[in-house]
Computed example of a mutant assay.
Amino acid sequence: MANIKRYPWISHFLGSPTGYVVHLQKGMVRHQGVGQAFWFRPANSVLSEVPVDDQELPTLFHAITRDHQDVSVQANVTYRFIDPVAVSMRLDFGLQTAGKAPATGREQVSTIIGQLCQSHAIDQIATTTLAEALERGVSQLRLVLTEALRADARLQSTGIEILGVQVLAVRPESDVERALQTPVREQLQAEADRAVYERRAVAVERERTISENEMASQIELAVRRENLVAQEGANARRAAEEKAAAGLIEAQGSAERKGIGAAAEANQIRLVGEAAAAREAATMEVYRGMEQATLLALALKDAAGSLPNIGNLTITPDLLSGALAGLFKEPAATVEPTK
């Protein structure tokens, strides 16, 4: 932006690096260029500053397709001023003093380029259907507008160069756009549903596989448990059989030991009995040849060992005479056995 310092009857101008200044004094060009600095008299001078940097112009307009559908076109035009002197003479880029209306050069350029874009875009879209405009309208319009604006005689004579045209969007009305989007949305929804169903099917298949694996594991565990129970039963039976066999062997051994002990005891008793019988026989054989008085004395001797203690013994004459008579009585003759 240019800087102007004002003094009484004279002013100083200091230009900017992007503004091309044209100083006219009494209808003649006194100064022109970028970054100028000079003194001038406001009373007889006219200053115009034309931007020399690239300018961006967004534009939006409507058009009707061949099948009578309204579409909106959004575009952006890039341009620059290649002849600032011609531009300053054709358009209003004057530097106004404070309190006056600003220059309208930029608005004039926007109107000119916008009307040209709209005119050529309407002609192009009128030859296409809505589907064609939505499908290839952006690229077609970009080529048509670029060629038309660059070849426009008014822009060339004004000193405006079109650097490029970008068509950002070609869109139908909102309800038509929603109607056109519905089949695609339905298709996308169908694809999403199919993906969901496939994912659920995969999940169900995986769950079934997991359930089968769990069932197989349970069956395997049941089989192993059955084998374990059978093995434990077999081990228990074998242990019982071994214990019974050991008990039988121990019982047999005990019975044999008891039989041997009983036989030994019976043999001992038999031997003792035989010895006692032999002793008795020998004693009887000895007693057989003794006299009766001797036998009586021996009997009294044996009986005395088993009788209780006798404190007082009274012997009557009758008892003493009978005993003495028995002692001195002659023994009876021994009868020989008959052979």
Rank of each mutant, 00 (worst) to 15 (best):
T128Q: 13
E241S: 09
T146R: 12
Q187M: 10
A2E: 04
A126I: 01
K329G: 02
S45A: 15
H120K: 07
G94N: 09
Q55C: 05
A131Y: 11
Q156K: 15
A169M: 04
T209S: 08
V85L: 11
R66M: 13
V202M: 15
D193I: 11
L91T: 00
Q156E: 13
G253P: 01
A332K: 05
D92F: 01
P183S: 07
R200G: 12
W9R: 15
A299K: 05
Q231L: 11
T97Q: 12
G15L: 06
A281E: 12
A203M: 10
L228F: 13
Q292D: 13
N3H: 12
D193W: 09
A2S: 08
K5W: 08
R30P: 01
M1C: 14
A276N: 14
P17H: 06
L57G: 03
G159Q: 02
A190P: 00
Q166V: 12
R185Y: 05
R185W: 04
L149Y: 00
P183F: 08
R142A: 10
R238E: 15
R200H: 15
T338V: 12
A282R: 14
I269P: 00
E250K: 13
G326N: 08
Y20V: 01
G15M: 05
L313E: 03
L313V: 02
E107F: 04
L298A: 10
V46K: 14
Q108R: 08
R136I: 15
F328Q: 00
D318M: 07
H68L: 12
H62R: 11
E177N: 02
Y197W: 09
P102V: 00
K301H: 11
A293P: 02
R224F: 00
V335T: 07
E207P: 02
R270H: 14
V46W: 06
V71G: 00
L228E: 15
E256A: 10
V21G: 06
A277Q: 13
W39A: 14
R154H: 12
E291M: 08
Q268F: 09
V202C: 04
D70T: 11
R106E: 10
G137L: 04
T129W: 05
A303W: 03
Y287C: 14
L163F: 01
M1E: 13
V144C: 03
V71H: 00
T65H: 06
T182E: 11
A192F: 07
R237C: 03
Q108S: 07
A246T: 02
F38N: 07
L141E: 01
S174M: 05
Q96N: 08
L47V: 03
L60G: 11
Q187R: 15
F40P: 01
A101K: 04
A276H: 08
M284F: 12
R288L: 06
L91R: 01
D53V: 07
A131C: 04
E256Q: 06
R208I: 07
K258L: 15
E214D: 08
P42H: 14
A239G: 08
H31N: 10
Q140K: 13
V138W: 05
K100S: 09
E274A: 14
A299C: 07
G15Q: 09
V184I: 12
A169I: 02
Q36F: 06
G105Y: 01
A179K: 07
S110R: 10
P84I: 00
R270I: 05
L313A: 03
Y197G: 09
I64D: 02
G164F: 02
I249Q: 14
T182M: 11
E177Y: 07
